[in-house]
């Protein structure tokens, strides 16, 4: 786990090789995170993977969060792991939500980390994030004919209203 100065060192090294790729850093509860430019996500990931001093060669998780009231709405999170030093580094790419029919897009990292294949499909399944150059960008868990992106915050919860007495008193 790189500490706060270590994280700033990593940022400086990336900035030296690829200026403008890292937008911010955050170090919270001993967890280091780089917030990067979504257009250069592959550049940053391959740098962290190949650079001899870093060599974060394992993607332990790829997931998406919806920060709906916030302005760049979707955060694609890459949890990187260096298995020799047992150091974890989080890389975040914040995506802006385009107008309704269009979906947010980001480059797929399957070429770098083959394990991302299923995880990117899951992110597409539940959040509607399209990963460019993914070999098979289809739904993985929901039925193929499902409409909507159910883990988004503005998706209705679903289910059925139940006539508990509590609901009768509260909602009439």
């Amino acid at each position: 786990m790189p500490d706060a100065p270590g994280l700033e060192l990593i940022r400086g090294e990336i900035e030296r090789d690829h200026p403008g790729s890292v937008l911010a850093t955050s170090f919270d509860r001993a967890q280091a995170a780089l917030v990067v430019d979504p257009a250069q996500i592959l550049t940053v990931l391959s740098w962290l993977r190949e650079e001899p001093g870093q060599s974060y060669r394992f993607l332990s998780s790829l997931h998406v969060a919806d920060y709906l009231p916030a302005a760049p709405r979707f955060g694609v999170h890459y949890e990187l792991l260096n298995r020799d030093r047992v150091e974890r580094l989080r890389v975040k790419a914040m995506l802006v939500d385009p107008a309704a029919p269009a979906l947010p897009t980001i480059d797929s990292c399957v070429e770098l980390f083959p394990t991302a294949e299923a995880q990117e499909r899951e992110a597409f399944d539940f959040f509607g994030i399209v990963f460019r150059n993914h070999p098979d960008m289809t739904r993985i868990l929901l039925p193929d004919d499902y409409v909507g992106w159910p883990q988004r915050r503005d998706f209705p919860v679903g289910g059925e209203p139940v006539t508990f007495t509590y609901n009768e008193h509260t909602y009439g």
């Binding site: 159910p150 919860v157 289910g159 059925e160």
Partner: peptide, 13 residues
């Protein structure tokens, strides 16, 4: 029988 605690988009009620 009723969907139980899973009153959501994925489970048949």
């Amino acid at each position: 029988s009723s969907g139980g605690m899973f009153s959501n988009y994925a489970v048949v009620q």
